[in-house]
Nucleic acid binder design. Sequence first.
DNA 1: GCGACTTTGTGCCTGCGTTCACAAAGACCT
DNA 2: AGGTCTTTGTGAACGCAGGCACAAAGTCGC
Lengths: 225, 225
Amino acid sequence: MSTASAARREIPEATVARLPVYLRALRALSARGVDVVSSEELAEAAGVRSAGLRKDLSHLGSYGVRGVGYDVARLSDEISRELGLHHDWSVAIIGMGNLGHALAAYSGFATRGFQVRWLIDEDPAIVGTEIAGLKVITFADLERHEPDSIIAVLATPPEAAQTAADQAVALGVRSILNFAPGVLTVPPGVEVRKVDLATELQILAFHEQRGKYEQRGKYEQEVVR
Amino acid sequence: MSTASAARREIPEATVARLPVYLRALRALSARGVDVVSSEELAEAAGVRSAGLRKDLSHLGSYGVRGVGYDVARLSDEISRELGLHHDWSVAIIGMGNLGHALAAYSGFATRGFQVRWLIDEDPAIVGTEIAGLKVITFADLERHEPDSIIAVLATPPEAAQTAADQAVALGVRSILNFAPGVLTVPPGVEVRKVDLATELQILAFHEQRGKYEQRGKYEQEVVR
DNA sequence: GCGACTTTGTGCCTGCGTTCACAAAGACCT
DNA sequence: AGGTCTTTGTGAACGCAGGCACAAAGTCGC
C-alpha cells in the first residue's frame, strides 16, 4: 500500500497531547545541566509512567540508547520538530475583554514559540487602543495582512464566538483555541480545541462532593466495625 | 456486597466531563422556552452523538420518558445536583499576575455557582490592593477564615506553583485548578486539574503542520493519478 | 381501549489507550 | 574479548469509551 511512509508517522492523539509535557520537562532538565536522562527519570519529571513514556517516544523513532537513556538535547529537538516548533507561529487573539487582555500580556506564549501578533476586536471603543505593545485591530484590518498559518485564540463573549470563528475561518484560519463556552461549529479541516474554565471547576466540584460522601461512607464503615 | 449503593452511582470520568456541557445546553434551551427535549436535539445542541448522550444520562438514573424525551427543568436539576451545584462553591484565586487578574474579573464563574471570594498573593506590592471589588490577601490572612470546601485556582508563575499548592493543601484545599505549567505533586485525596495554554497551542501547531503535509500528500496523489 | 409511532435505555462490539513483563541491544568493567 | 548489567523498545493482556442497533416502554390518535 502507498500508506507505508504515512503509517510510520501516525502518532496517537493521546501521545501528541503529552509531547508538550515531555518537552517542558526536557527543557527544565537541560537548564539544570542534565545531558542524558533515563525513561524512569523523565517519566518522574513529567508525571507519567515510564513504560508509557517509552511507548510514546517510540512513535517518534528510536532516539534512546539502551543501557544509557535519552540524550536530552537530541530528544528536545526531535519533539520540537514533530510538534512543528522549529519555526514560530503567529497567534491572533480575538476578543479583548478581561481574558483576551490577560492572554495578550501572558508571557507563557512567547517563551514557547508562539508570537502574539494580532489583537482583534469589533468594539469601536477598543479598536485602536494599545494593549501589551500591540494595536487592537478589526477583522477587516487583519485581512490586509498575510492570513496564512495563524492560530486564532477566541476570547469573545459566548454569543459572539460563533461569528468570530466564522470570520476567522473565512480568513483561512484552520486552528482555533476556544475559551468561549458553548458549541462551536466549523467546517471540516478546521481544528478546534476548547478550554472551558467553568466546566473545569464543575468537574472539580463533582469530585469534591463525591469525596465528601466517600469520606462519610468510610466513617460509617468504621463505626459499623 | 456493601458496594451496592455505591456501584449504582459510579459515573465514568468521561461522562462527568460532559455533564457540564449538557447542563449549559439545557440552560440555553430553557432560556428559549423549551420544556421538553429529545436526546437527538440535546445531543445536537451539546455537540455529541445521541446514543452517547443517552448512555451518559442513564448513569444518573431514568429521567427520560420514552416516546417524549427529557423534561428540561428536571434534567437540569438532576445534573446540577449530581455535580454538586446546588450550593455555591467558594473559589480562591492564587497569584495575581495577568492571568489571576483576568480570572478575578471573569464573569463566567459567578454565573455558574462559583463565587470568587478570595484573592491571594504574597507580593507586598500587590497585597492590600483591590481587584474586581476584592482585597488581595496573603495565605496567612486566608487561614483566619473558614478554609473548608474551597476550590483553589493556581495562577502563579511556574516556579511558585508547587509552593502555593502546598500552602493551599495545608489549609485543607482538596481541589485545585492549575494554570501554571509543570508537574504538581500533591498528597492523595487532592484533585488537580491542569489547564496549560501553551500545551494547547502546541497541540494545535502539531495538527496544523500535519494538515499541511496531508494536503501536500493529497496533492501529490492527485498529480500521480 | 387498542394499535401505531416515537424515543428511551442498553447489550454487544469494536477500537484506543494503558499497563505489564520481557527479550533485545548496547555500554562498561575486567 | 567476553560477561554482566542497565535500559530501551515492544508484544500481549486488559480495561475503558464510543457507536450501532434493537427491544422495551410509554404517548397519542382514533
